[in-house]
Amino acid sequence: MIEAQNITKYFDTIKAIDQMSVQIQSGSVFGLVGTNGAGKSTFLRILSGILKPDCGQVLVDGQTIYENMGVKSRFFFISDDQYFFSNSTPKEMRNYYTKIYPKFDKVRFDHILKSFDLKADRKINTFSKGMKKQLAIICALAAKTDYIFCDETFDGLDPVMRQAVKSLFAAEIAERGLTPIIASHNLRELEDICDHVGLLHKGGVLLSRQLDDMKLGVHKIQAVFPVPYNKEDFTGMEIVTLEHRGSLHTFVVRGEKDLITTKIQEKNPIFLEVLPLTLEEIFISETEVVGYDIKKLIV
């Protein structure tokens, strides 16, 4: 389990992480989503012991990470811009990582490298951006660590490669309980692979929940009523947002589908539709509540 307890991180006067606390259970796939500059990458860099938090602490299975070699061999960090030694080849990187990670599986590395059609002796600096990403993923999978931290890892991969990588991750999760932590803006993609999602905004965690509960706990309702209604007209319902477009009311409401339907039907709608939210819509409605509103940005 990974546990962040009240961590704060400043860069000069900029507060990148603000008293953040979050728990990540082993065996789950944790998706880290957030607004731009919310602190996703900073959080991952603290998790991997590159940065030291100014306050609070992060524990991996009960141990602190910063300058702790033993713990560091238990995770692999695929950063947004991967680092390879200058003039090195995949084979040299493999030999290097074998020394760092005690469980590094050379056979597996060679096997995936071959099936991804990457040459073991080609200089990495002649690789395309996507190929470098692939190589970093192969290193991570072959390292057989308990955790893999991915910072925007799926971006820059083609659709076939994305499916292939997700399948490889799925196999590792099923076989040995790998715990990936994936930061991404591609919410559509996180929906397939994550079971737990943490939503970051301005250095703090807005919410952290099971994805399926999240999706079934918030609903989007489109309804047409003979007369217009406001938020206050609906009691006993937790309305996140309500918008009017002519007589069409669009709600985002927290709660069970049946309960919401009954409540709305009391107002005799001419038309009523209740839909679960996509992760993208949850993101938009939750950040809107804390003042991150698209309408403010485009006007």
Binding site: Q163, S167, A170, A174
Partner: peptide, 18 residues
């Protein structure tokens, strides 16, 4: 099996387990 279906669909095995 959970593993095979997860690999085939490229989704989280925990979801299939559930």
């Amino acid at each position: 099996t959970v593993r095979n279906l997860a690999v085939e669909l490229a989704i989280n095995p925990n979801t299939i387990q559930r």
